[in-house]
């Protein structure tokens, strides 16, 4: 019996300004799996996530997400699909004057879930508070979102996505612009969420260090094309790293963690 896929992309292309942003022959993500989408800047990682959310209207090909053909959906039906997907964007609203508290931002996840003309119930607020507690944000719950640190804002957005009770979690560079300490805390958080809930996760990242220990599959994109798909050790070989980043780096894999460290092959 075949496994169930939460994402299945076939012959998907996205063009903009006569430039190919994405050209993926086949990429599927199994239910309950965690996949990292990696590749250099401009490889098409974020575009691929946005295609899955139905945010790229001119995408071509077969895009099936949570058994829905995304290209066939419009308006309320597309909104219904998005409510089943937790999305953590790369860029966060950075307006210091935003009056929303951390708790209110997390509650946006419930707003999407319950739909129009309904008020958030006590159960909704319990779910919001549970995720605030689980991600260690309880002491910040009543502080303005704009006043907490970048790492705390990331955690807030992850809590918001999880409060939505999604079937699929899409994380777009969740550790972008964070220091090493916060990067590790976010990686740990993603790992915990995945191991505890077994939700399907697609994680976009640049660095091997960001792969959580539970992630055993990497899909590597380059110039919009899927060039490799497999275990991190298989995808990030010394040859591949040299092709991608030049001679100065070599891959390091140990105890489920991965990194690129200085000291690659030298010709001289």
């Amino acid at each position: 019996m075949g496994s169930v896929n939460v994402i299945c992309l076939r012959a998907v292309t996205v063009h903009a300004d006569r430039r190919c942003l994405l050209d993926v022959d086949c990429l599927c993500v199994e239910q309950g799996g965690i996949v990292a989408l990696m590749g250099p800047n401009g490889a098409g990682k974020t575009t691929l996530l946005r295609v899955c959310l139905g945010l790229v209207r001119h995408a071509q090909g077969q895009i099936v997400v949570l058994n829905e053909n995304v290209r066939d959906l419009r308006g309320a039906r597309l909104a219904m699909l998005r409510r089943r997907i937790g999305y953590v964007p790369q860029l966060l609203p950075a307006r210091s004057e935003l009056p929303l508290t951390v708790r209110e931002v997390v509650a946006i996840g419930r707003t999407a879930r319950i739909g129009l003309f309904k008020r958030l119930t006590r159960r909704d607020w319990e779910i919001v508070d549970r995720w605030i507690e689980r991600l260690g944000l309880a002491s910040l719950a009543d502080r303005p979102f704009g006043a907490v640190s970048g790492g705390e804002q990331r955690k807030t957005i992850i809590a918001r996505a999880m409060a939505q009770e999604p079937e699929l979690l899409l994380l777009d560079e969740p550790t972008a612009n964070l220091d090493l300490g916060w990067r590790e805390r976010i990686v740990e958080t993603i790992d915990q969420i995945y191991t505890q809930t077994r939700i399907s996760v697609v994680l976009v990242c640049h660095e091997l260090e960001v792969l959580p220990p539970s992630c055993h599959r990497v899909a590597l994109l380059e110039s919009g094309r899927l060039v490799s798909d497999g275990a991190p050790e298989q995808v990030f070989t010394e040859t591949r790293v040299t092709e991608l980043y030049g001679d100065g780096l070599r891959p390091w894999h140990e105890a489920g963690r991965h990194a690129l460290v200085p000291g690659g092959h030298r010709d001289d």
Binding site: L53, L55, G75, A76, A79, M80, L81, R82, R83, R84, I85, G86, Y87, P89, L92, P93, L98, P99, L100, E104, V105, A107, I108, G109, T111, A112, R113, L116, R119, L120, F145, R160, A161, Q164
Partner: peptide, 19 residues
């Protein structure tokens, strides 16, 4: 609740399924 989400981020509100 929808206005609050749009106030936070119109793009993000759209991405999570708010009309």
């Amino acid at each position: 609740k929808e206005l609050r989400a749009i106030l936070f981020s119109r793009m993000e509100a759209q991405a999570v399924g708010i009309q």
